[in-house]
Amino acid sequence: MSIFFHELKRGQKSLLVWSCAIAFMLGICVLIYPEMKTQMDGISTMFAEMGSFSEAFGMDRINFGTFIGFFGVECGNILGLGGALFAATLGISSLAKEEKEHTAEFLLTHPVSREKVLAEKLLAVFAQIVVLNMVSVLVTVLSALAIGESADVKTMSLLFLSYFIMQIEISAVTFGISAFLRGNGLGIGLGIAVLLYFLNIISNLTENVKFLKYITPFGYTEGADIISNGAIEMPYLAAGIVFTAAGIAIAFIQYRKKDIS
């Protein structure tokens, strides 16, 4: 497990910064809820009048006046988009960074198989995503307790679970892509995460492109769906699991035969 621990050590600063940033914003978001609640009448009318803007974020379908409704849309976006960007940077750079900094030559001339390198690196990526999400859950619970709000545990757990699976999917897909890269793919990784986020927003706006929800993992993290159905949308989730498996499989197939320059 030397590579796994080496990877965690290399990533600890970045993990600390991302966790703090996302947890801080989540915490702030929860803490402003009491203030928002007092103005909720005005806000609800405002959102009602905004039409497609509300639809884009699923705000037409959930009750903004409840804590879980507020959390599912407002705070969810922070962990959703922030976590997606973090997962993408991890996934895309895990392998590509070694080649960009020419350390792949160092690593792969040691008696370790490429499969072992891949497995331990992927495991390290997942572990860092787990940590980020645990910190996020902890900060959310603590700040909810601080403002004296409570929410249905099952629904909250489903929200967090969906964000977590989404980040795993994005990291696996970008990991698969990075097996083809020679240099730094950070731009590609972040681009993919943002693109997937906007695909979901577009699919919320018009029924014609509903199929996009099968492509983007944000399809199954939609707070409005989870809160109103009390469940994660299974067809979208299934598609996500297929993409995750495909990303990992492609990484193994490609990296096994890759020329390291």
């Binding site: 030397s2 080496h6 020419h102 350390t103 030559e105 160092f106 001339t109 040691h110």
Partner: peptide
């Protein structure tokens, strides 16, 4: 590879690491 010692023409290492950590990482991988 477990029986070979390789010195690349341009040796590059993980930035930020100290020499002793590089040496011990290499030994661990062996």
């Amino acid at each position: 590879l477990s029986q070979v010692g390789y010195l690349p023409s341009e040796a590059m290492f993980y930035s930020g690491m100290r020499v002793r950590d590089i040496l011990s990482y290499s030994a661990k991988l062996h």
